[in-house]
Design a protein around this nucleic acid. Structure first.
Lengths: 160, 160
DNA sequence: GTTCACTTGATACTCAGTCTCAGGTGTGGG
DNA sequence: CCCACACCTGAGACTGAGTATCAAGTGAAC
């Protein structure tokens, strides 16, 4: 099943109506390969000449966040974004700081590490969140290529 | 040296004037054991009948964030807060979800784990952020006591 | 077809944070 | 001591994200 279908199914399974508007939001959300903001969705809706209210988009995102189909993310810039993700498994996000593409990362060893930190500090850890930012393979390759070509010519570094 | 002094020193070392307003912000910041928002500082300033502009507080916090004396944090609620922290070492934050107290946690093994995740996904990781939320020892003790003693007597929890 | 709960868009609102600008202040040079 | 100038400040307007409200629309069940 495609992403849009999965989102709609999640809605219905939770007892919500899969109204045209919500289907639209599901489509818009599924169409992003990475993170997006509510404003992005509105903008894209507007471009496709679909009339959908601001409040409706926020409500739909809230709903999807509740269903854990999307998750809220805090970008290093301090602004909020959303990413589509797998609702069934605790995981974290790896976000490309260049193209915005995002991948789920399994919790793996982190759980053990978090446990240990909790024990060491005497805290009862209830939640943890790991966010990773960097260049995805494609952007890293592009950056290297650009640096290889450009630095020799201009003496300027592309990576700071 | 106390916290306030350290903050002021950091300002001066970076070439900024330690004006009365900045000293005040430093004091307010140092007086918090945990995380706080800009609004908290303004409120406390107001309570102590000190006249300080909103913009000034934001500017001072920006400055301190630049100097890495405080760090911005994203609470699970989605709102932003600040915490005082050690500017000299990469670390993460352990925040008590009950009293708001915050502790620095050394990066430790996490660096290796992050490296490995990057390698596995082919990402060049540039930044990572781990945030831990839970009950600090004091609140955990209080919660346990309340659960054991008070619930039987009053049916009401003391910690919210 | 009626009813009723759910959904919607418009719009007003709140709140954090930024921007601007005129005025205040500290500091260094003379 | 005075002046010039850069730095700092408060007020308040502004922005943008997100929320609240409300009347109207819609779908589903009976």
């Amino acid at each position: 099943m495609n992403q849009t279908g999965r989102i709609i199914q999640a809605l219905e399974r939770a007892g919500y109506q899969a109204t045209p508007n919500r289907r639209l939001v599901a489509q818009l959300v599924a169409a992003t390969g990475g993170h997006f903001t509510a404003a992005d969705l509105l903008e894209r809706g507007r471009l496709e000449r679909v009339n959908i209210g601001r409040a409706t988009v926020f409500r739909a995102l809230d709903l999807l966040t509740d269903l854990r189909v999307v998750e809220r993310l805090d970008l290093p810039s301090g602004s909020h974004a959303y990413v589509v993700c797998d609702p069934d498994e605790h995981h974290h996000h790896l976000v490309c700081s260049s193209c915005g593409h995002s991948e789920d990362v399994a919790d793996g060893e982190l759980a053990r590490l978090v446990d240990e930190i909790g024990r060491r500090h005497g805290y009862q850890i209830e939640a943890h969140r790991l966010e990773l930012f960097g260049l995805c393979p494609a952007c890293a390759t592009a950056a290297t290529a650009a640096a290889g070509g450009a630095t020799a010519a201009t003496g300027e570094e592309t990576v700071h």
